[in-house]
């Protein structure tokens, strides 16, 4: 009797070990993706851009007021020329976005930039260092800031 109980315990242990090994393997590979698929997967920013519901942002003009607004608020972290080197930059755990970097900004739609400014970084899955400006700037001002960022990067959303 004792032997059969011990054998049962052993086989349960083996089954548990097998399940654990399978689970670890599955987790290691990813949610239903093969290793090959993972290796060729697009970078996270691009993946997120594709997931976002397409939404066209009304066009806006960049005026002197837009530039002053950028200098007054955004330059604190993003720098006077938008290079991500404002006075706060080196004290932040996540560096402020460099608005002259085409490679990243091409992967963002205007609507995504608008949402990041209006609702803050955390609301759009980015760093919480970026505050929400929706109660400080109206939608027109935010739209014109999006256009100004496009001027700084000399780029458009792909």
């Amino acid at each position: 009797m004792k032997t059969s109980v011990t054998n049962m315990k052993k086989s349960c242990g083996n089954l548990f070990a097998a399940i654990t090994a399978l689970a670890v393997l599955a987790w290691g590979i990813g949610c239903g993706q093969s290793r090959e698929e993972q290796a060729t997967a697009p970078p996270p920013a691009q993946q997120e851009a594709e997931k976002v519901r397409p939404r066209k942002l009304e066009s806006a003009r960049v005026t002197e007021n837009t530039r002053q607004t950028y200098q007054w608020y955004c330059a604190q972290c993003h720098g006077a020329e938008g290079k991500g080197d404002g006075v706060n930059a080196k004290f932040l755990t996540v560096p402020p976005r460099d608005h002259t970097k085409v490679a990243y900004l091409e992967t963002r739609t205007d609507a995504q930039l608008f949402d990041a400014i209006k609702f803050g970084g955390l609301a759009v899955g980015r760093a919480p260092c970026m505050p929400a400006w929706g109660h400080t700037l109206d939608d027109d001002a935010i739209r014109s800031l999006v256009q100004y960022i496009r001027e700084l990067c000399q780029c458009e959303a792909l």
Binding site: N65, Q71, A75, A80
Partner: peptide, 25 residues
Amino acid sequence: TPPRPPVTVADANTAVVTAAGFLRE
């Protein structure tokens, strides 16, 4: 006045104001 891109003629119509004043350490 901080460094900034040139102002276009169209911008001059909506011109602002005072220099923003920028920050340095």
